[in-house]
Design a protein around this nucleic acid. Sequence first.
RNA 1: CGGAGCGUAGCUCAGCUUGGUAGAGCACCAGCUUUGGGAGCUGGCUGUCGCAGGUUCAAAUCCUGUCGCUCCGACCA
Length: 588
Amino acid sequence: MLIRDACLGNLCKLLEMRWTQTFIPTLKETPAEAEITSHKLLLRAGLARRLAGGLYTFLPLGLRVLRKIEAIIREEMNRAGALEVAMPCLQPPEIWQKSGRYQDMSEVLYHVYDRAKKEWLLGPTHEENITVLVASEINSYRQLPKNFYQITVKFRDEIRPRFGLMRAREFVMKDAYSFDVDERSAEVSYQKMYDAYVRIFERCGLRTIAVEAHTGAIGGSFSHEFMVPAESGENEIAFCESGKYAANVEKAVSQGPLIPTPTASTGASPEKFPTPGVLTIEALAQPPYNVPAHHQIKTLVYIVESKPVVLLLRGDDQLNEAKLAGALGTVLLRPATPEEIYELLGAHPGSLGAVGVTHVPVYADLALRGAAGMTTGANQDGFHLRHVDIARDIKVTRWLDLRTVKAGELCLATGLPLKISRAIEVGHIFKLGTKYSEKLGAVFLDEQGRPRPAVMGCYGIGVTRTLQAIIEQSNDKDGIIWPMSVAPYTVCITPLDVTPGGRIMSIAEQIYRQLIESGVDAILDDRDERPGVKFKDSELVGFPIRVAVGEKSLANEQVEIKPRAGQLMLVHKTEAVNRVLELIKRAN
RNA sequence: CGGAGCGUAGCUCAGCUUGGUAGAGCACCAGCUUUGGGAGCUGGCUGUCGCAGGUUCAAAUCCUGUCGCUCCGACCA
């Protein structure tokens, strides 16, 4: 990447950089703290160091990458018409109480107290903050639409920080908030961000898939996540090969189970039979019972906003908690304890069923519609019921989509089999609606002079996570392979003999200086090290282009250009600069 | 929050079962040699054995507590 093209203001002052003058503490061995590839390489390449769990110090090289990613984000956000602001990290709890998220997000909030013992929060996100600003500053439809963004540190008390920067207590996030006069206009704002995100991740050299997503604690009507497919990802996505459908598994739907649900009634009434020691679907599928899982009804008990509900799924299906939360419009839910279950149904987990249950709401998964001849728990420890016809024998309060889709099920849109893959979430865009504007008073007067709440959207990018996701997606056995756009330096000049004034060093310095003057972000490895050490380090750190100057090739007046992920090229020493410039140009 | 594993030199680890003067490799420093893929030799530096308490003549080692790190789980009844 040419520096002047990238508009990296501050970097321009650091044109000249020699390896011995900066700080690149590479590691030959992997620190024990790292488990996944990108985390190992983050540490080994000398990009960052851990201070405590989920807290990292960025070293000069890592910071350069971070700044380049931020620069790309700024350019694309500005291009999309968003306005940069900077909001405080420290926030008053009152606005969180107003929005209701003081409770809803209590688990991730960091609380701090001042001298007067007054409570403050370290911001995990800034919807409240920006909405309060807009509430006081924006009064007319003439001032809309607006989209404010910032790139700042966020704090979240994660249940389990892990994988280095992937899930940290403190991390850099780009967050943007749009305010519109109506739904239609909000959708335009949303689409602009969608397009900006596609460009941002493309420019960062990341392959992402935009998937339909669950809205979670942020709230709102619909959303897309930008996912980087990776084995180490913490999310699962389902997608159709056609590219026409992709969704987070928390949200994904299909044509239904591959094996149809039995719907032929045996005609018989429910019959209780003893099943001593049988506590799982799997056990009931084994001899002597031999009830296939899809002939069983799985019965779960959840506590939703302090009240119990019974959930029914096919025996071979998995409950999708996100769908349940979405369908019931709350995030305050948890599995009931065995004690609560016993009190409610008179039996312990493993023997539960919904036949005859009328004192608790019963929510059944759509795959069970019309199910007949099923087997389920009898609400008596050690017994099950067979010949259960759900329409006849169970009072279903509501039918809901509660099951998790499985790989191979058919896509609703195309009829092709769905694939499931793990993925890293690097960006998330939400259409929020008026949830925050109503609660926090972001109201403007429309053309008729009527007060209306602004229609909001919010848009996040995990900047530090994106950095590590790039490493996770782009590496080989030797180290990182940085895309040119975000590499800490684009070119590494590697003289194999650093004797000052010597022929090799002189030629290396000449090439180096010419590249710098051409606006190329280059570093000169002036360390008095053996060639093997320099080669290994440059590959570990992952500079996109290495120019080696050594005795061997110089015998033919040549130097070596080695793209990190490409073939070695021998070129005449006077051609080196031009060839490097060509390579850079071609990559842009 | 539940479960498991691990805390010994800057890094990777051995030593712990069976208590008895703190170890190796890498890194670092000095010197010589080497010089196109993480060099070789010689010499040297480096430790509250995570912390606190206990048992013991004696604790890195055994016991208790505690803190930290890593992994799994915290839907699938």
